[in-house]
Simulated scan of single mutants.
Amino acid sequence: MTVVIQNTTSPSSTGIFVPVAGLTVFAIAAGYLMSLVPLSLSSFRIDSQYAGWLASSYYIGLLIGSMMIEPIISKMGHRAAFVSFLLLLASTVIVLPLFANRDAWLLARLIAGMAVAGIFVVVESWLLISDCPKQRAKRLGIYMTSLYGGTTVGQLGVGVIGVDGFGPFIAVLALLLTATLPAIMLRQSPPKQQAHLSLSLKDIARLNKPAIIGCVVSGIVMGTIYGLMPLSLRQSQLDPNQISVLMAAIVLGGMTIQPIIGKLSVVISKTLLLALVSLLGVFAVGLTYLTNDFHVLAMALALLGMSAFALYPVAITLACEKLDAAYIVAATQVMLFSYSVGSALGPIGAGSFLEQPLANPSNGLMDYFFIVLLATSIYMLLASAKRSDTALAS
């Protein structure tokens, strides 16, 4: 895995408005599209049982893309690569309503995942290639806020624009084309790379195991939320406005917990923190078993969003905790790969649970989340205890 580890352009000269502006508009389009794909299946006479496969196809594309994007950026540069990946994603949006069959949609979502992996790598490297650690932290905060905020707004499109016919796909296409405008029209210098470094398979095997498992579980939960939750909510007889509010609540929960996680991660063990955020998800699922009240469900899904969105940043910081600075970017790409594996497998594993709607407290996706998050919390608690015992022994 080849990665960029340093640059020759100062942070002030690169600027962040272009990638942040493009990312924000992209996130709005992506947030809407994630809910639109499973909810529009019936409109195009595609069996809803393929929703899980469509989600997995997308995340398999994300996995593939995470391994092959860097050489493209090195050859094209950040600006051209960013526009190219956005246009590639836009082309897959055109395909969906024009070729309304299962195989075309599976292929389109696979390519869409590869394009989105490219967008993420371009923006992250554009923002985070900096000589100043404080600058990196600040830019990462801006990145997370733009991504989650845009995704939250995008979820509202389900209620405002709808999910039937060609109109929603035209809206997504317009947003993606708009996202290219800052990079095309504004002249801010993207970063320049001069050095590359690789992690061997032996080095990868030595990475923190709870961190890798945390990223895989994060992918399982997030892939299932984005791929199947809208469909599960629709099966529960909720209308599009309610579905959009509930999906937005999940992402808002994820946004809310980010500063809290940042402070807790320097106070307690990150392995223990992974256990605690997993238990938060278990608690959220438990709330859905107690009542079918809409407001309680919104609060429960917000808490589930906190749990799901906290797993990845905690896991990735745990992975980099004791690494030499030269290997940090390579480690983050391994974590993205692990996340993508979980994202690809999650919706497939959740497929059988989708047969029962969320309104039935005895089954549904909530059972799936309960099993995954409870098992994760138990593993992390054991790993944390073992780590503490080792520290005391030494």
Rank of each mutant, 00 (worst) to 15 (best):
F44D: 03
S340D: 07
I268D: 05
H196V: 13
Y59E: 00
H78D: 02
I250K: 07
V160T: 08
I129M: 14
G219F: 02
G149H: 04
Q242A: 10
A310Y: 10
L88E: 00
D47E: 09
A137N: 11
F353G: 12
F26E: 02
V4M: 14
F82V: 08
T256Q: 09
V160Q: 00
I268C: 09
T151Q: 03
R136W: 06
I94S: 04
I213T: 13
G65M: 07
S198H: 11
V282F: 01
P97I: 02
L279K: 06
A330C: 04
L303D: 05
A325H: 15
L304S: 05
G364R: 11
S10R: 13
L106D: 01
P259V: 09
Q258C: 02
E70M: 08
P230L: 03
G262C: 09
G219H: 09
E321W: 13
K209Y: 00
G31P: 12
G286T: 04
H196C: 02
H196A: 12
T9A: 08
L127Y: 10
L304N: 07
V153A: 15
V158F: 13
F369D: 02
M229Y: 10
V245L: 12
S125V: 01
S244T: 05
L273C: 11
V216G: 05
V160H: 14
A315E: 01
L33A: 13
Q242M: 11
V121Q: 12
T317H: 09
V277L: 04
V277K: 02
G154V: 08
P191K: 10
K322S: 14
T291Y: 08
K202Y: 00
I371N: 11
M1K: 10
L88H: 10
I212N: 00
V217M: 09
M114H: 01
L89V: 07
D164Y: 03
I371W: 15
G342Y: 14
L318K: 02
A205K: 12
L373Y: 05
L280M: 15
G65S: 04
M306P: 01
T288M: 15
L127N: 03
L290I: 06
V341Q: 08
L33F: 14
P361K: 00
